[in-house]
Amino acid sequence: MESKYTCTCANEILKVELCGRLDATNAEGLQTELKKFIGQKIAELVFLARDLEYISSAGLRVIIFAKQKIGADAKILLVAPRDAVLNVIKMSGLDNFMAVVDTYTK
């Protein structure tokens, strides 16, 4: 599957749709994209991860970056991650600042 991501922001909700692989080859691009939202009022930061097959250390760092720079006061959601992705996040202990949910309907 092709690696890609899309960011959409509406009603103070920033949705980041992840697809394929998120690693050092594309993490920087996503980070640059997310930088555009610094300073905007974001109440919810939602990572839609159903189609994310793999996340590496660099990929996780983008999520941490987003939390620190964009959503310090925002609710952070990881939606429908696959087991392989969720395991990496949990084992490395990086799941403590976000809620993992099965579905997201807004």
Partner: peptide, 13 residues
């Protein structure tokens, strides 16, 4: 997470 090369993060966590 050693198999994913993430031992540094896990140890720090």
């Amino acid at each position: 997470t050693g198999k994913f090369g993430m031992q540094v993060d896990e140890c720090k966590t």
